[in-house]
Write a protein that binds this DNA or RNA. Structure first.
Lengths: 126, 126
DNA sequence: ATATTGTATATAATATATATATACAATATT
DNA sequence: AATATTGTATATATATATTATATACAATAT
């Protein structure tokens, strides 16, 4: 599966896993119905406990990215990535709307908010 | 001062204090320059430690609602535009942080989020 | 001088987050 | 039926954050 886990990252392992698998699905590199490595295999590969991979897979299932079946394994769900992305975009839209509302109602400029966004992205992609 | 503290509330005591005092100030029942009860008096009245009232007063001061002076006491601050702006910036920061988190965890690019922000500002400033 | 005000330090109790080991249960394979 | 594979449940460990406290200290007012 070739996921990269950093122990020095401030992000928890299960989150590093979900983030990367989400990206694989959204980008189409993992396709509908396709099998994910079993929790145990992935755990072994990443030198991590099964509980951690389970936690990651549970999160992915709750968010509709995959489906898990006892004895069979985990598979990319048929819910299309486009729908999920649209949903996420909507969540972001609402947050940004609130931010802009506050900005406009208190004399904070576009430049200031835009700079904050830039900074935030730089910080978090490291 | 007549604040109501609930021990069964899921909200911490210091937060119950700040919320109620903020409301008193915003509603004008506590006016600029007016003295708040000393941390010790309030602590005694609420049967709570001084550290807890201090925590509440510190939060209120950081948010620009009151001003505290050693030996004198705590007073309702004059509404300070700079402080309010800083507070608003913080609120915006938190919203944008959430937005960026969602974006990064679902393969949404900086360009997309940035475009949304641009759009939002254009729409709302027209 | 003393009482009042806020502050600093060290500490404790609790809750939450993260990760694990191990034993259990369901399904597939032989 | 036996065995290997898959996921699941329970109990636990560790670290960190949150909430609250006691007590000793410092600044100001009277």
């Amino acid at each position: 599966m070739n996921l990269k886990i950093s122990n020095t990252s401030n992000k928890p392992i299960y989150e590093q896993i979900t983030t990367q698998i989400k990206n694989l699905i959204v980008s189409g590199r993992l396709k509908e119905g396709e099998a994910l490595p079993s929790m145990r295999l992935l755990a072994k590969e990443l030198r991590v406990s099964v509980i951690t991979t389970k936690r990651a897979y549970e999160d992915l299932e709750r968010e509709g990215f995959i489906q898990t079946l006892v004895g069979k394994g985990s598979f990319v769900a048929k819910t299309d990535a486009e729908k999920i992305k649209r949903q996420k975009l909507h969540e972001i839209d609402e947050l940004i709307y609130k931010a802009v509302e506050i900005a406009l109602s208190s004399g904070i400029s576009y430049a200031e908010v835009s700079a904050m966004l830039d900074e935030m992205f730089k910080e978090n992609t490291l």
